[in-house]
Design a protein around this nucleic acid. Structure first.
Length: 859
DNA sequence: GCAAGGTC
């Protein structure tokens, strides 16, 4: 009797298929590796009576790697990995001894039927199996087909029998497309990873990662997290206004209404609408509508949905959820947990599965009700042809499963029962009002029947206070109508569940590998899991992705994978040659790699050096960041700048000078510590806020302004507080007291290079609230040194106008901040209109001859 | 020590 070897992708499938094909009459034994079983029975094949041996592998038999000597990181240039380094196939899991096992079972067999999963990976494994078994199988007769491929789309009797009766051949092209994918992933991933790791490891002491990996799936996954981080960082809140109306009828408590315009971004426009609405004291009911709505029961559960719920509702990470699910599966509590399918097979025993749950107190009531009233037909989902949806396989109790096991099992079971329950139905009531010209509405939901939400109460329609009954034409009294100011808020960090959705949408990873990629970026210290399982990129993660963006954004974009897969599918379809596609893709990535290496030495070094202290540390901590309150580093190398490594933000400072900390004083607007900029020993100096300098806080300010041009109305460092009078030379500048200049006190123009020295040796110089009656400049309060006072009678204190007060005349002298001597313009003929400082506009109507005279005196 | 894809 001839023997037919049949091989499935995993032990559980071998068992299911053998049971179907042998009609339950097979004998089973363990294989030599302990992991796989062999199921034997007799039956008919190609019109003859044969012995069947059904067994399986455990996923891939082989995996691709470089030959040994190319795995020496110290001796191999990563660039060689693109073509020079030969690859070889090694056993994927040496402990399983899969090749040996297959050969032992295949020896003397006459035919082989490949029952591997019906996707490209499965097709590839077909050839891995063939490579192992064909050398030891009996040679068939001339032109006799000995290799067969079974194509099935679900694990049901009909499908399996159909597959058995319509055997085909394995598809070499599909398998080759996977070979190409493996080689590309290996060469590209390893080249970039080795280069990055070695390059940065030797350079930065505080890089908290021993491995800086790159991959076509993990890097875009990280990219999603950093993209959200960047959105949060660059978010600028916008102020908007809403009309809030409260109305009531009789003794009912007031209803808060929603405005039909939702919101406006202009306060005055909002106020106009308030005024229009306020013309009416009544809110008139325009329409009342009641509609029955439904919330659909869920589709049957697949892996990614289970992972999303595991993360967002059970607080379990995807990797952990998968581990628990695997355990529940091997213990027989749930069906196979890796599936994309969301539709039950035709002949799925819904009722039997439900009946198993009839005695579990958590949902016995609902299950019994369903069994007696009849199951609802499950929603149509998609059938990926892999495995049935995830369902419970037998009843369980919390005690036998352990805490997390039970919580996942409970969810899977509730989800299953929900799929055969009724939809949730509720009544949506909407009342529309008009108040003056404005329209408002309020709505409420009333549950009609809970349906499936009895099993998934977190999705239920909450009981709300009922809306008052009313009819069109009814009048409500307006209790209150007002304009409320709100601000738009930034988005939050990505949740794991959102990330899974993004990955699924962009085809990054598969149901089985998505948890691995997410786990990778956590373990490599690129992201941390925060409360609510939100993924916050670390400094390292942000710097890496920003580096890719600057050098070659394609390296991090989610399209990197799909673009390559498009090419690979040409191989699968037989439209392109394996070698050509492989070489083409490798060529592109080899060029990307060289460009990356060249650029990184220039660009990423700059980025890294401000974030991580290089061994020769540049930049020293100077002032505190207003966002994270950590010290920012002052990088003196041009262009000099401040960098907050925690926030990964760089702040410009004025060039051609130096900055130092300004007494640890902070900007009242953003809490950044002020720094003092000085142009040199005889130059001018003024404080500035590193944040405001690049982000002007007020409308009348521009980028690049320090505190001496800041129009903050009450800050002690602002132009308003320290401005003294119009500049004597330029048209738009204001002379501002330099509060740090004592004892050689001076005021400097905030626009040009005019510096006025005054009151040398005074103890204290302050700008008064009062102004000069003659020239409108701010008065200055001076406290002289007793021994050197220029005041008559040895007086030490005096308040007066710098420009007009005769007592101050000898104490004031004009200089320029630079050596350049500016030609005097105008002298006594100067036009007037020199209003005083404090940031106010000059008053052109008030001629100030005194100012012109003063200018002549100075020069 | 590296990728991504199977699976235990």
């Amino acid at each position: 009797m001839r023997t037919v070897l049949m091989v499935a992708e995993k032990p559980s499938l071998a068992q299911s298929i053998a049971r179907i094909l042998s009609k339950g009459r097979c004998t089973s034994r363990k294989g030599l590796n302990g992991a796989c079983s062999v199921h034997e029975y007799t039956g008919s094949f190609q019109g003859q009576s044969v012995r069947f041996k059904m067994t399986s592998v455990c996923g891939h038999v082989m995996s691709l790697d470089f030959i040994g000597k190319y795995n020496n990181w110290d001796k191999v240039d990563p660039a060689e990995l693109f073509s020079k380094a030969p690859t070889e196939k090694k056993e994927a899991n040496p402990k399983l001894n899969m090749v040996k096992f297959l050969q032992v079972e295949a020896r003397g067999c006459d035919f082989v039927v490949l029952w591997l999963d019906c996707d490209k990976e499965g097709e590839n494994i077909c050839f891995e199996v063939l490579d192992a078994v064909q050398p030891v199988m009996n040679k068939g007769g001339v032109r006799e087909q000995t290799v067969f491929r079974a194509k099935f789309s679900s694990i049901t009797d009909t499908d399996i029998w159909n597959a058995m009766n319509r055997l085909g051949e394995p598809n070499r092209n599909e398998a080759l497309s996977v070979d190409a994918r493996q080689e590309l992933d290996l060469r590209i991933g390893c080249a970039f990873t080795r280069f990055q790791t070695k390059y940065f490891q030797g350079k930065y002491g505080n890089l908290d990662s021993s491995l800086i990996s790159f991959g076509p799936c993990q890097t875009p996954t990280l990219g999603f997290c950093v993209e959200r981080h960047d959105k949060i960082q660059s978010f600028k809140p916008e102020t908007y206004w809403i009309l809030q109306a409260k109305v009531f009828k009789g003794k009912d408590s007031p209803l808060t209404l929603d405005w039909s315009r939702v919101r406006v971004f202009d306060r005055e426009v909002g106020q106009m609408f308030v005024n229009l609405a306020k013309t009416s004291k009544e809110a008139k009911v325009e329409a009342v509508s009641q509609k029955e709505k439904t919330k659909q029961r869920p589709q049957a559960l697949n892996t990614v949905e289970m992972l999303r719920v595991g993360s967002s509702a059970l607080g379990m990470g995807p990797q952990h959820t998968m581990q628990i699910a695997e355990r529940l599966y091997t213990q027989g509590y749930i069906s196979y947990p890796r599936t994309e399918t969301t539709q039950y097979p035709e002949n799925f025993d819904l009722k039997g599965t439900l009946r198993q749950q009839a005695n579990c107190p958590m949902w016995a009531e609902e299950v019994k009700a369903l069994l007696s009233a009849g199951l609802n037909r499950p929603r149509k989902g998609s059938d990926a042809g892999d495995h049935p949806p995830i369902t419970p396989m037998r009843a369980a109790s919390e005690g036998e499963l352990g805490s997390d096991g039970w919580r996942l099992y409970e969810y899977i079971t509730r989800h299953f029962i929900a799929t055969v329950s009724q939809d949730c139905r509720y009544l949506q009531t909407t009342i529309e009002f008009s108040i003056g010209t404005e329209r408002f509405s309020c709505g409420g939901k009333t549950p009609i029947s809970a349906g499936y939400t009895a099993l998934m109460p977190w999705q239920g329609v909450p009981l709300e206070e009922a809306l008052p009954t009313c009819q069109p034409g009814d009048a409500f009294t307006v209790d209150e109508i007002r304009l409320v100011e709100r601000q738009t808020g930034p988005p939050d960090y990505l949740t794991e569940a959102e990330l899974i959705t993004l990955m699924e949408k962009h085809g990054i990873g598969t149901d089985a590998s998505i948890p691995v990629h997410i786990n990778n970026i956590c373990q490599r210290n690129y992201v941390t899991v925060e409360t609510g399982r939100r993924l916050k990129p670390t400094n390292l993660g942000v710097v890496l992705v920003h580096g890719y963006y600057k050098i070659d954004a394609e390296l991090v974009l989610p399209t990197i994978r799909s673009a390559v897969e498009k090419q690979l599918s040409l191989i699968a379809l037989g439209k392109a040659n394996f070698q050509q596609v492989l070489q083409h893709a490798l060529d592109i990535f080899r060029r990307k790699f060289h460009y990356f290496v060249d650029s990184i030495i220039r660009k990423q070094t700059e980025l890294m050096e401000v974030s991580f202290s290089p061994i020769a540390a540049t930049g020293k901590p100077l002032s505190r960041c207003g966002k994270c309150h950590r010290f920012m580093k002052y990088i003196q190398a041009k262009p000099s700048r401040l960098h907050c490594s925690h926030c990964d933000e760089t702040y410009n400072v004025p060039q051609n000078g130096a900055i130092k900390l300004y007494k640890e004083l902070r900007c009242p607007l953003d809490d950044f510590e002020l720094v003092l900029w000085t142009s040199g020993a005889r130059g001018k100096s003024y404080p500035l806020c590193p944040y405001c300098f690049s982000n002007p806080p007020f409308r009348d300010m521009k980028k690049g302004m320090g505190c001496n041009e800041c129009t903050h109305p009450s800050c002690q460092h602002s132009l308003s507080a320290l401005g003294i009078g119009q500049c004597v030379e330029c048209d738009s500048g204001v002379l501002v007291l330099d509060p740090t200049s004592g004892p050689k006190w001076r005021m400097a123009c905030n626009k040009c290079n005019v510096v006025v020295h005054f009151f040398e040796h005074a103890h204290k110089v302050q700008v008064s609230q009062d102004s000069c009656e003659v020239c409108d400049a701010s008065l200055v309060m001076v406290d002289f040194n007793k021994a050197r006072t220029p005041l008559p009678g040895g007086e030490t204190q005096h308040t007066g106008c710098v420009f007009c007060d005769p007592l101050f005349q000898d104490a004031v002298e004009l200089k320029h901040a630079t050596m350049r001597r500016t030609a005097h313009r105008g002298g006594g003929a100067r036009r007037g209109g020199r209003g005083r400082g404090r940031g106010r506009r000059p008053n052109p109507k008030k001629p100030k001859d005194k100012m012109a005279a003063l200018a002549a005196y100075f020069v």
